[in-house]
């Protein structure tokens, strides 16, 4: 089935089996292997990409459902020679070890920060009028859909915290 996707600002044409997930389309058909398959069941978050501004597990959706959608993957966030501030903060704070969950963590965090700016509450929010002041607990809760078995969690929170500060200043 033919599908048009706008990925990282570029028009991409896909002609794939209708059973192809968005994740497999990215990885196997479009050469964008930054998004990872850790469980294929929406349980680990390694495949997180941003579709029309919202983070989703790309393994849980079929590519053919996204005709005309705007998709951002890790490749669209920054390159090794031109890292985004959040990516730099992950390197500086060692917000990863093996690196496998990392593209998903960074895509997830990128969209999460927008969610907070838009005033979306979370499970741990005490005050619905002050959502965008992200406490460490808020960051941890909002990133809990992204597993990291190396358990860089405290460093991931620190990296996101730093990037929040940088954006604010």
């Amino acid at each position: 089935m033919k599908t048009s996707l706008r990925i990282n600002g570029e028009e991409r044409q896909l002609d794939a089996d209708v059973r192809t997930t968005l994740l497999d389309a990215l990885r196997q058909h479009l050469g964008l292997t930054g998004s990872k398959k850790g469980c294929d069941h929406g349980q680990c978050g390694a495949c997180t990409v941003i579709v029309n501004g919202r983070r989703i597990n790309s393994c849980l959706t079929l590519a053919c459902m996204h005709d005309g959608d705007e998709i951002t993957t890790i490749e669209g966030i920054g390159t090794p020679d031109n890292l985004a501030p959040l990516q730099k903060a992950f390197v500086e704070h060692d917000g990863f070890q093996c690196g496998f969950c990392t593209p998903g963590q960074i895509c997830s965090a990128t969209a999460m920060l927008e969610e907070a700016k838009a005033g979306w509450p979370s499970f741990v929010s005490d005050d619905l009028d002050d959502i965008d002041t992200l406490s460490d607990e808020e960051i941890a809760e909002r990133m809990s859909g992204n597993l990291c078995r190396c358990s860089a969690y405290p460093n991931i929170v620190a990296a996101i915290r730093e990037s929040v500060k940088e954006t604010a200043s």
Partner: peptide, 21 residues
Amino acid sequence: ANRPDGALKVSGQATYAAEWQ
């Protein structure tokens, strides 16, 4: 010191086994 492999990992460019095609 930061990991020399850090930039590749945070940008999705490190090539794990299932990346080879």
